[in-house]
């Protein structure tokens, strides 16, 4: 009986903590009818926020996948001085507040920062512009690919890679055909975590964005702006869209994991 009691408790908690909030978001979005909710997307600022979020997410995922794979591969294959320090550093963004992540970039690239005057002369702004948002998003999502990939690479070991080398594979071929496919479940997991986090990042982006509607507002920032502007329906419609995007990411991940279960057992 305790089994069912525990199960019921978990269901209740999950329902209250995880299921209910998105449902309420959706309910709020539709509180004035679907028409009012859809009208949200007639606003060019909203479309711009959606577009910016997608671009930033795609770029972040691209950059962090490349860097994450490089870092995970290097760290799991080689022993070198400072390796443990590097592992700690890679995890740093997980423990540091995202606001700090944003402020750090301001310190470097803001006009009062180290390279501020040089950048100003160059004429291409980094802070309060999409490049700054990209940097901030990359910073907060940096650890995910590395952290999910490293244990998998360690678990897989090196012999499959060595086998590929003796068969004539180059370093790149080993990585592409053996190492990454062998750890693709972890890689996909890391990429999707990065995607979800990049789409939803608020704190770090908020610091470097400047909150310029239509230009530097991502979806989370635009939701805040809408909410503060008493545009409740629009705010919750955008929020519902963001929730939907996150649900899609999770669903893709689950689907891929199920599809790959077959071949994932070690030979």
């Amino acid at each position: 009986m305790t089994r069912f009691a525990f199960a019921a408790l978990i269901y209740l908690l999950m329902g209250m903590m995880v299921v209910l909030p998105p449902v309420m978001v959706l309910a709020m979005a539709l509180s004035h009818g679907a028409g009012a909710a859809l009208a949200t997307f007639a606003d060019p600022d909203a479309l711009s926020a959606i577009r910016l979020t997608i671009i930033m997410t795609v770029l972040t995922v691209g950059v962090n996948t490349v860097f994450g794979v490089m870092a995970a591969w290097t760290l799991s294959h080689f022993r070198f001085p400072g390796r443990n320090l590097l592992i700690v550093l890679i995890e740093l963004p997980l423990s540091v507040s995202p606001v700090v992540g944003g402020l750090v970039w301001l310190l470097v690239f803001g006009t009062q920062g180290w390279w501020g005057t040089a950048l100003e002369r160059w004429g291409h702004p980094i802070m309060f512009a999409p490049p700054g948002i990209l940097l901030a998003t990359i910073f907060v999502t940096f650890p995910y690919v590395t952290r999910t990939l490293m244990p998998m690479l360690a678990h897989n070991g090196r012999t499959a890679e060595e086998a590929a080398i003796t068969l004539g594979a180059s370093l790149w071929q080993v990585l592409w055909h053996v190492t990454l496919p062998g750890a693709r479940l972890a890689l996909v997991s890391g990429i999707l975590l990065t995607t979800a986090r990049a789409m939803g990042e608020f704190g770090a982006v908020s610091v470097v964005s400047g909150h310029i509607p239509g230009l530097t507002e991502t979806m989370p920032l635009h939701i805040e702006t809408l909410y503060n502007g008493y545009q409740t329906v629009a705010a919750f419609t955008m929020a519902a869209l963001l929730v939907l995007m996150a649900v899609i990411v999770v669903a893709v991940r689950t689907f891929l994991e199920r599809g790959q279960d077959r071949t994932e057992k070690t030979a």
């Binding site: 009062q112 920062g113 100003e120 802070m127 309060f128 400047g210 503060n228």
Partner: peptide, 20 residues
């Protein structure tokens, strides 16, 4: 024209750091 909003001090700080 676009207008961004926030706490007055925070907004001034943004402009100081390079918000255009």
């Amino acid at each position: 024209v676009r207008t961004s909003h926030g706490g007055s001090g925070a907004q001034a700080r943004s402009v100081l750091e390079g918000a255009p």
